[in-house]
Design a protein around this nucleic acid. Structure first.
Length: 424
RNA sequence: GUGGCCGUAGCUCAGUAGGUAGAGCAUCGGAUUGUGGCUCCGAAGGUCGCGGGUUCGAGCCCCGUCGGUCACCCCA
């Protein structure tokens, strides 16, 4: 084999082994998600898979090494513009919201997107260089009940496709007053215990102390268990917001766990953050996650309005969902027993398809036995046999593949009798 | 990007102390000149990831490289 797919990518095809390689499961998940999104009145937005690097750099802070941090695929176009394949969906959606003045309409604007995201990382279970996210952005309001809707929507989508062993983690990382109060406390605490922290956390202690909570090092986690909790530092506004979100989730019956160590990788989050994890995955156990971003819209040149959204990894949803079988959709398979029967069979097939009956026929020039074998494997309920005898009588033989029963029907007047014979 | 493990037919794998490759399933054909699922017979299918090296001889040993996988980093 001379060519292989690029590192960290995979193909979706009939017969794929892993759930995320199966085309039928993709159709199922996307279909369910679109249905539920529609029921919540979210509408689709499609934005380019590449944007100016600057857009993504703007949205994720730590400007200097952002390209490295977010591990973006970047390239320069022929006009010397620095571009990047999108690593996440929010910046493009928010950019479009601003660019098309959607903030002038009645708010919120509730959008969803489905599409590929790109990150240049080493692959592992549930992590790919090109992965797909189903995401949602509710833009133009800071109403905490929108947070409730967005989180319950994420949960509803996961439940509908059967994500196993799911826990929603919830936190509020506060507004600016909250952080001004909390971050210095946390930083001071970390400095005091720096000797017990891993190098990555030591490095982040000054630039972004909140992120140290993400560390997987045992020693670091032991230190963090004793760290001051953000809950005690929440401004009155942030505390109220969290209380409304919690009681809303309780009222809707969405199970969640308050997790004061939950921070998020993207720096634009404010107030509400959440993560849906599944025990059915490996180390990459976050199926979907998101949060509120009350400064992002204005940072990108829009009005001072809040927004909240989530992204959910389709590959991870597929991996975390219980195995599922999808049945064959084929109704009928034509078996031709003479070369001159093939074109008539195709003509009849056309007539059947026009009536919504799915059918197929052999293209390999197989003998009778081989064709019946194909019919059997196709999962078709009926085989329609067309040979010299049938041709001369203007009939076709319909065989019920399960019972083996056969009956000959008249097709001199078209496909009517044939349709009736198979109950269509 | 770093590290552990792995890389033999389409798939899952075996391959013994180094002697130029096997099985099961799948595919195709036949047993049944126009009838599937079971059974039997047969065929086709491999530069043993790639490149070097050691050796009379390498799928087995050594080096490099590419790829996969899992974990770290990061994140959906």
């Amino acid at each position: 084999m001379s060519y292989k797919g690029p590192r960290g990518t995979y193909d979706v095809f009939p017969g794929g082994r892993e759930p995320h390689e199966r085309a039928d499961l993709w159709a199922y998940v996307e279909g369910r998600a679109r249905e539920i999104l529609g029921l919540h009145n979210y509408r689709e937005v499609r934005t380019p898979v590449f944007e100016e690097v600057e857009l993504f750099a703007r949205t994720a802070g730590e400007a200097s090494d952002i390209v490295v941090q977010k591990e973006m695929f970047t390239f320069r176009d022929k006009g010397e513009r620095e571009m990047a394949l999108r690593p996440e969906g929010t910046p493009g959606a928010v950019r479009a919201y601003i660019e098309h003045n959607l903030f002038k309409l009645a708010q919120p604007i509730k959008l969803f997107y489905v599409g590929p995201m790109f990150r240049q990382e080493r692959q592992q279970r549930g992590r790919y260089r090109q992965h797909t996210q189903i995401g949602v952005e509710a833009l133009g309001t800071s109403d905490p009940l929108v947070d409730v809707e967005v989180i319950s929507l994420l949960y509803a989508i996961h439940q509908s496709i059967g994500v196993r062993d799911e826990v929603v983690h919830l936190n509020n990382i506060g507004d600016m007053p909250t952080r001004r109060a909390y971050v210095p406390e946390l930083r001071a605490f970390l400095r005091k215990n720096a000797a017990h922290l891993d190098p990555d956390s030591v490095a982040r202690m000054d630039t972004n102390p909140l992120r140290t909570f993400d560390s997987k090092h045992e020693a670091t986690q032991a230190v963090l268990a004793e760290a001051p909790k953000i809950g005690a530092f929440l401004s009155p506004e942030a505390a109220d917001h969290l209380a409304v979100v919690r009681s809303g989730l309780d009222a809707l019956g969405v199970p969640y766990e308050l997790d004061e160590q939950l921070v998020r990788g993207l720096d634009y989050y404010t107030m509400t953050v959440f993560e849906a994890k599944s025990g059915a995955l490996g180390a990459q156990d976050t199926v979907g996650a998101g949060g509120r971003y009350n400064a992002l819209i204005s940072d990108l040149g829009g009005p001072d309005l809040g927004g909240i959204g989530f992204g959910s990894g389709v590959e991870r949803m597929l991996l975390a969902a219980a195995a599922r079988e999808t049945e064959s959709a084929l109704n009928l398979f034509f078996v031709t027993l003479a070369p001159e029967a093939r074109v008539p069979a195709m003509r009849l097939a056309g007539a059947l398809r026009a009536e919504g009956v799915s059918c197929d026929l052999d293209f390999g020039g197989r003998g009778a036995k081989g064709q019946f074998k194909q019919a059997d494997r196709s999962g078709a309920r009926y085989a329609a046999i067309l040979g010299e005898d049938e041709l001369s009588r203007a009939t076709i033989k319909v065989r019920d593949m399960a019972s083996g029963e056969e009956r000959e029907v008249d097709v001199s007047g078209g496909s009517v009798e044939l349709l009736r014979a198979i109950g269509a």
